[in-house]
């Protein structure tokens, strides 16, 4: 008995240290994550099994009804529209953002890079709501854009309250993210490879396609995915700029929780579906991105 006791006494500190170290380091952030991310997500998951629940109702999970309703044509149409907006925004951000990031990371003088980058990130410091409102006053029928067009004798454009306005607003909101990540990736570009390609007789276009693009592919995938995910969850731009036919999954989820037609069960099922979709695409990115990185 005494020997066992002393043995325990000897071992406790090691045991404690082994547990204490991660506990102390992870505890604050861990509590934060568990209380404010893991638990709410679990509650959403549970609510997704309760048909038609509203605040004040008993939570009695009773089947997959909410998930089946996602496959009704109307909901699928809304989800399809969300995907269309998100893919469109990603493509436009890529088309607009890549040249900018390339110029910033490869061509622009080094000492200007940080300042230029800062200028590009500056819009992120204002509220996204404010930026969407700014687009309303630019795009509305008698707005800034049409006044400019009229002053140079061009016909007016009717963009507000339609799909183009949503794409403009979302592309504008998310472009800085695209540029930042692509810049980080392009800045590390190995220029010796470009010179080697030129030496060996590749045209600039060939060099770009076969040497530059493969090097920044992980960055391209990461920035596109970040833009895509954010666009999928954006409800401010579709709500403010989209007009009568701009119901997206994110807006519908908002309506199901806080709008005029509350149904927290359906809202939770759609949220769960979005979470699964986003998680899957991130998992794909990690797998795809890693493999590419080891290939290079």
């Amino acid at each position: 008995m005494p020997s066992a006791k002393s043995k325990d006494k000897d071992r406790t500190p090691a045991w404690l240290v082994r547990w204490l170290e991660p506990l102390v380091l992870l505890f604050p952030a861990g509590v934060w994550l568990v209380l404010l991310l893991v638990l709410p997500t679990l509650i959403i998951f549970e609510l997704s099994f309760v048909p038609g629940i509203r605040p004040g109702d008993l939570v009695i999970p009773s089947g997959l009804g909410n998930y089946l309703r996602i496959f009704e044509p109307l909901t699928l149409l809304v989800i399809g529209r969300s995907l269309l907006f998100a893919i469109g925004t990603t493509v436009f951000c890529l088309l607009l953002g890549f040249p900018v990031a390339y110029w910033l990371g490869v061509i622009a003088p080094k000492r200007w890079q940080n300042l230029l980058l800062l200028a590009f990130v500056l819009p992120l410091w204002t509220s996204s709501l404010l930026r969407s409102y700014a687009w309303i006053s630019i795009l509305r029928p008698t707005g800034v854009l049409n006044s400019l067009l009229a002053s140079v004798g061009l016909p007016s454009l009717d963009l507000l309250n339609q799909m183009p306005a949503v794409l403009i607003g979302m592309t504008y909101s998310l472009l800085p993210y695209m540029v930042l990540i692509l810049y980080a990736s392009l800045e590390k570009l190995d220029r010796r490879l470009l010179e080697a390609a030129a030496d060996l007789g590749a045209t600039p276009a060939q060099t770009f396609w076969w040497v530059t693009v493969p090097q920044v592919l992980p960055g391209l995938a990461a920035s596109s995915l970040l833009v895509f995910i954010n666009a999928l969850g954006d409800f401010v731009n579709p709500e403010l700029l989209g007009g009568p036919s701009s119901m997206t999954a994110a807006r519908l989820i908002y309506n199901k929780f806080l709008g005029a037609t509350p149904d927290w069960g359906m809202g939770s099922a759609m949220s769960t579906m979005l979470i699964v979709m986003v998680t899957l695409s991130i998992a794909l990115l990690i797998k795809y991105g890693d493999r590419r990185a080891t290939d290079l």
Partner: peptide, 18 residues
């Protein structure tokens, strides 16, 4: 976790949202 869900929601009486 499942204990939490059980005590919270899957029992016959359930909890009341909000």
């Amino acid at each position: 976790l499942s204990g939490l869900m059980l005590s919270g929601g899957l029992s016959s009486c359930g909890w009341r949202l909000g």
